[in-house]
Nucleic acid binder design. Structure first.
Length: 410
RNA sequence: GGACGGGUGGGUGAGUGGCUAAAACCAGCAGACUGUAAAUCUGCCGCUCCUUGCGGGCUACGGAGGUUCGAAUCCUCCCCCGUCCA
């Protein structure tokens, strides 16, 4: 990623538009870039995030990477933590009212959040703000005044609300306040551009309108596509369990990326790597013409996605390990080591649960009966099997397709 | 405040006294095949105990009580959601 400040408007625009779902409005953004170029004053670009889940996954990084792009070309990245708004709960994409978070949860989440965010953003050059800074100071009069700037009908145009209304699902009144209160963020930050995922479009547009109501120019809005999760159809999200966490070990991330449907590769290339659109089109052509094996293209993708989080070396190792285990069907070079005390014998089912490879003994028994458990490469299909733990030893335990553990007794 | 409808396993959704750990579908998991992709086929899919058996125990149909030999199913009260009226 080139770190060149203030290229021409066209160059900047092309760079920023890459991967974007929509820019509202393109001509306004160009104008803002031109003014900034002229005055030498960087644009204020912000991304607001509610610290609801403390663990970031690749889905979150799509929009963070875009913020980084702005940062790369010299604009000011503002990372806004919605510590106040998280306590309301964003109704976006939710089919039911979300339980509000407590102050303690929000604080704890915000902390771990930032650590992860700076794996992508440049820490030194990022302005971090919390929206409780101004929202906590608002009184009832301010809130009433704010509400008077927006109409109920407009609010109900929003997809989430409309469908919940149609399907007789509850909508709490405080949820209507979410886009309005977060608009105050945009007002206070005096943002020139706000970023978000496409599902945030409604909120971002409300922010823009409210800014104007409060006498500001009105920010441009840039939305990024939603990253599809491992299942190949639904949005990547923690609650759906189809996500790849950015703090997961490289091997884990690698395996997960390899398990995505082939067609999804191209969108991952576009949203998670620095490949240019031309580059990606070329890869795609090579894969479909048979010049390159799709699996190799996907392995390359996995390496490129992992590298920023774990480094080139770790990414390379993960690739080798993958090759070894799944292509050559050998045992992994390295597996997480779990120690266990010398202690007579133990039922295999109990051991699997104890090592947290399986959630319950019933499930472990099923897995064993189905042939999903191996010790040192030998399938064990007797759920009553005792594992000898009477003397120091070590063995490789496999549970299911992906889970390997090196058990060290002693 | 009133009238009416509704709350079932991760999701959708059957089931109106025993044959129901609860149909069916989706999701998920495992095996086969393969490129740990997709597709397909097969099996599994609450917890637990053991003598692993079409085995035993426990928990489960919004909550609490009750009727009954027996309740997701009947009764009472409560909570929650929606629709219409005010």
């Amino acid at each position: 990623m080139a770190n060149v400040k203030f290229k021409s408007v066209d160059e900047q625009f092309a760079y920023l538009k890459r991967g974007a779902a929509e820019i509202i409005r393109e001509d306004e953004l160009r104008l803002k870039l031109a003014e900034s170029l002229k005055s030498g004053k960087p644009l204020r670009v912000y991304l607001g995030v509610d610290p609801t889940a403390p663990d970031l996954h690749l889905g979150h990084t799509v929009v963070l990477r875009k913020l980084k792009h702005f940062q790369d070309i010299g604009h000011t990245a503002v990372f806004l933590i919605g510590d106040f708004s998280a306590m309301i709960g964003d109704p976006t994409g939710v089919s039911e009212t979300r339980p509000p978070l407590t102050r303690e949860q929000v604080d704890a989440n915000a902390k771990t959040y930032l650590d992860q965010v700076f794996k992508i953003l440049d820490r030194e050059r990022t302005e971090v703000r919390y929206n409780s800074e101004w929202l906590n100071k608002m009184n009832a009069v301010d809130v009433v005044r704010l509400c008077s700037h927006y109409r109920l009908a407009r609010m109900l145009e929003r997809e989430d609300f409309r469908s919940r209304l149609n399907e007789n699902q509850p909508i709490s009144v405080h949820e209507l306040l979410y886009p309005l209160l977060t608009a105050i963020d945009a007002v206070n930050l005096k943002s020139d551009v706000e970023l978000g995922a496409t599902e945030q479009k409604f909120n971002l547009l409300v922010h823009r309108e409210i800014q104007r109501e409060y006498g500001l120019p009105g920010q441009a809005v840039l939305t990024m596509p939603i990253l599809v999760g491992l299942d190949g159809s639904r949005k990547m999200s923690k609650s759906l369990g189809n996500y790849i966490g950015i703090t997961e070990p490289p091997g884990e991330m690698f395996g997960k990326i390899m398990s995505i449907p082939d067609e999804l590769m191209w969108s991952y290339y576009e949203l998670l790597t620095d490949r240019t659109p031309g580059d990606i089109a070329a890869l795609k052509a090579e894969a479909s013409s048979g010049k390159k094996h799709p699996m190799d293209v996907k392995m390359q993708l996995a390496r490129e996605v992992i590298a920023p989080f774990h480094g080139q070396d770790a990414a390379g190792k993960a690739a080798e390990n993958f090759q070894r285990v799944f292509r050559d069907r050998q045992s992994p070079e390295e597996a997480p080591v779990k120690k266990i005390a010398v202690n007579g014998a133990k039922k295999l089912t109990a051991l699997l649960v104890e090592l947290q490879l399986i959630a319950s003994k019933s499930e472990a028994e099923r897995l064993i009966k189905q042939g999903g458990v191996e010790i040192d490469g030998t399938r064990i299909d007797d759920p009553r099997k005792d594992v000898d733990l009477s003397k120091p030893a070590e063995f490789l335990l496999r549970a299911g397709k992906k889970k390997f553990v090196k058990v060290v007794v002693g």
